[in-house]
């Protein structure tokens, strides 16, 4: 059993926190894991992605092959579609529905949403959900919650535990706020 996940978004949206939490859960569960990320110049307002590979067997490549990813988890709808070549036949996209427009030639929003609807995807205004549960900076946790049932190789509960572990040093309040956002995401994703 394996799960290849592409995490993507725009630099600064918090995809690496999602990667850290899944990594923590996977390590605790004794899974093999490889996680490739791009640092440096591409962080600044540009597209960013991370290849996250989880498996019960040893993993060779740090990168996911084309048509290899069972899951694309994206903080931004256009970014979700940037990596379609990597989505497997039965793969799924879990994405924020809200465009992040920082370029002059961002595509027509309606057409973009329509195209996304033709793909095996679920989308949600994660920022609004995060605000509604009192944690406006927790949109990435809402997204992780939405994606949690689809991750499969890790239980939803193990991801909750990982959130507690990763945010423990920031205090109980932060842990609770992030768990609340995560739970809201799980509920919305079902």
């Amino acid at each position: 059993m394996k799960k290849d996940i592409i995490l993507c978004g725009v630099g600064g949206q918090g995809i690496l926190s999602i990667a850290t939490i899944i990594g923590e859960a996977a390590t605790k569960a004794g899974l093999y894991l490889k996680q490739a990320e791009v640092h440096g110049m591409s962080q600044r307002g540009g597209d960013v992605q991370s290849n996250l590979r989880l498996s019960i067997e040893p993993i060779w490549s740090d990168l996911i092959a084309e048509a290899g990813a069972e899951l694309i988890i994206s903080m931004e709808p256009m970014e979700a579609m940037r990596y379609l070549a990597y989505l497997s036949k039965d793969g799924k996209i879990v994405t924020s529905s809200k465009p992040f427009v920082n370029i002059p030639n961002y595509p027509d929003e309606e057409a973009l949403q329509k195209e996304l609807d033709t793909l095996p995807s679920i989308k949600l205004d994660i920022e609004t959900v995060a605000k509604d549960c009192g944690n406006p900076r927790g949109a990435n946790m809402v997204l992780l919650g939405m994606a949690a049932p689809a991750i499969g190789i890790l239980s939803v509960e193990s991801l909750r535990e990982a959130i507690s572990t990763v945010f423990a040093r920031k205090g109980e309040q932060v842990v609770e706020a992030n768990l609340k956002a995560f739970d809201a995401g799980v509920k919305a994703g079902m």
Partner: peptide
């Protein structure tokens, strides 16, 4: 193996930029 899905039509490059 090759890709299963065709590239998205509604797509634009998002180069890095000054903050």
């Amino acid at each position: 193996a090759g890709a299963v899905f065709v590239p998205a039509k509604n797509m634009a490059a998002r180069p890095p930029q000054l903050c």
